[in-house]
Design a protein around this nucleic acid. Sequence first.
DNA 1: CGGCATCCGAGGTGATACTG
DNA 2: CAGTATCACCTCGGATGCCG
Lengths: 146, 146
Amino acid sequence: MGVTIVENQPVERIKKIGKILDDKKTGTGLCPIHDFLNHFANKWSMLVVLNLGYAGKPRFSELKNMITGISQRMLTVTLRSLEEDGLVLRKLYAEIPPRAEYELTPLGKSLLDVMMSLGEWASKHEAEITKARKQFRKANNGLRKK
Amino acid sequence: MGVTIVENQPVERIKKIGKILDDKKTGTGLCPIHDFLNHFANKWSMLVVLNLGYAGKPRFSELKNMITGISQRMLTVTLRSLEEDGLVLRKLYAEIPPRAEYELTPLGKSLLDVMMSLGEWASKHEAEITKARKQFRKANNGLRKK
DNA sequence: CGGCATCCGAGGTGATACTG
DNA sequence: CAGTATCACCTCGGATGCCG
């Protein structure tokens, strides 16, 4: 029987990945996903997007309270970055005291869908990963250790 | 009229996100997605997973050549981390010269699906983001600048 | 309240050299 | 070939203080 060929891996999938990876260079010389990750692969961006999707139009302090462990600075920086990328819309009301509202743009909402998939995956497989980590550490205890 | 309620945002989606965010704490006191991101939110992990999904069972050096810009060290570290999380399987053949093969575990393949969604999103919206960035910079030139 | 500027330490990342 | 080890950098991210 066919040992390695195709296996249960659809050829179509391979093509898809190839497209993601190769895609006409972005001018930066990187594939789109790479370029995307450069800006977006940090733990706060995704959490902010998810929480914005959850909350609707939270104010700055509301958002800060929602996201466990985030500092004011990081929330500011992350929001600014997302705003710059066109994923988040910032509305500042010139009131006293000042008020700011944040919400996802349509582009941001489209990303939210993907983020949700990722979140659901994490939620679903979290236990598996934790288990794998323990096994790994047990198996390699004193082996690959320094 | 109901100003903020529901809007065009399905209630079901809100519930889903809430679940992702709140889920019974992971023991670390963080929601699953947060915990996941702590280990996984760096630019290399996702690229390695995607390339492994693409290549099948590449050797170390093959993988290194596939991923633009990654250093030997970072590839090693990333692979080790993924292996520890149970996403990647490493087969080392005791030959001369040595040979190592890497492949995704079933768990890793399930993540691949999600990564592909992310990759397709990035590929699809990359131009939009680039455009948004330029606009943002133009609009705020000398405004929010230092 | 909603930021921004600054300082500073910890850790991520790369270059280089070495080993089995 | 497939790593490990060491070092040096340099960005990330927290703490603090100030402003509109």
